[in-house]
Design a protein around this nucleic acid. Structure first.
Lengths: 216, 216
DNA sequence: AGGAGATTTGACTTTCAAGTCAAGACCGCG
DNA sequence: CGCGGTCTTGACTTGAAAGTCAAATCTCCT
């Protein structure tokens, strides 16, 4: 499972900025490997030796780039939130109903969840450096708030059912955040197929016709 | 966070079976505390000292009842699968369409996920004793298979959309399995309200009308 | 070439939780 | 009582992974 690390500083470079570029690339490289493993096995179950081995470097090298394991996790989460922010921003640019926007957001999030190492599902908050927990929670809440607003917009513009509560976002996030648990690149479904199916459920539900509400 | 352990052997008993009853009760008691913590923080992030402290006993006591940490996890998962089996069996008894049954199953599963320590989301399979992994996977797959069959039944009896694929179960399980991450007993939503909302999404989707398929 | 800084690593120390054990507490019995 | 078995625990050992460090290597520049 060894992938190749970006070559050590330069190799063929000429530009004076190569060093810094390299550093950023390696930070990123390590973060991706870590995200992938944290996602698959959980933070505590993943040792830095494994992360190092996955990309063919040694553990101390990781410490050269990250202060400690918690900071690495923090890096993963910040990246995740950045990407979510990006998608959401992009989403707001779109023409169309709030429902269209929600579908777009969901689709993009599924893509990210299927892309190796792109993001880490933010769930092990307690493992973060103590001083980072507050700010991260705040960002998280802000994201949730904007999603809820999108739902409210949808109710307002008539594209969503009028009785939708705040759990809607949790429902969507649950389904989406679960994908990394079972998605395999070599599995039978492409990310696009997954997104199509999920959006189908989300928009129309699973019932054959929009009729009675079965209940028990 | 200390709850009271069932009293030590007897206390007031007379029956000759009390001993064995006690043992079963304590096995269960420990399992519940563990399930709750494993669910909330993950298996590796939970130490047995924490489990012990939660119920006011010492770590060696846990070892008196369970061979080791993995066996305790196994106990949690077996219990979870047992409960799922029960619900599914109960579900099959019901009169009604496959959709009705799916809704019932979903609702009951949400209740279990909200009930403290009732079940542990089966996700850290690798942490189980090696020899238990195979059988547990088999049971898990069997459960999934039966759920898929329920979906197929629904397509056949016309209560579900005809184009539903196998991801349907994953979609549902994702949304449901995510609930323990955010559900709080003192939160704004009761399990019933959550179940109602989720089933609403599931059956009808979120769109105001069953019209076009927004896509991006 | 060769020296300065940047990067990497083998070998080490530290820490923390899993797991053990033998001594003690508790219980129901004669 | 006090004895035998059941249960509980403080104090310990062990192992694995976090984290450190100084020596080795690499890169670029002159």
């Amino acid at each position: 499972m060894i992938q190749t690390m970006p070559p050590s500083p330069s190799a063929q470079s000429t530009s004076p900025f190569k060093r810094e570029d390299m550093r950023v690339q390696k930070l990123d490289y390590i973060r991706r490997a870590a995200s992938e493993l944290f996602n698959k096995k959980g933070f505590d179950a993943t040792s830095l030796d494994e992360v190092a081995e996955k990309i063919g470097i040694s553990k101390p090298s990781i410490y050269y780039y990250y202060k400690n394991k918690s900071e690495l996790l923090l890096g993963c989460y910040i990246r995740t939130l950045d990407l979510c922010d990006d998608i959401l921003a992009e989403t707001h640019q779109l023409e169309g109903s709030a429902l269209d926007k929600i579908c777009h957001f969901t689709r993009q999030l599924i893509f990210l969840n299927c892309a190796k190492g792109a993001i880490a599902v933010v769930s092990e908050i307690d493992a973060l450096p103590a001083e980072a927990i507050g700010p991260l929670r705040a960002r998280s809440r802000d994201l949730t708030r904007r999603l809820k607003r999108l739902i409210a917009d949808g109710v307002a513009d008539g594209s969503l059912r009028p009785d939708l509560s705040d759990v809607t976002t949790l429902f969507i996030m649950g389904a989406v955040n679960w994908t990394p648990r079972w998605y395999r690149e070599d599995g039978p479904m492409t990310p696009t197929a997954i997104a199509d199916a999920y959006i189908g459920f989300l928009v129309h539900g699973v019932a054959a016709e929009a009729d009675r509400t079965p209940d028990t």
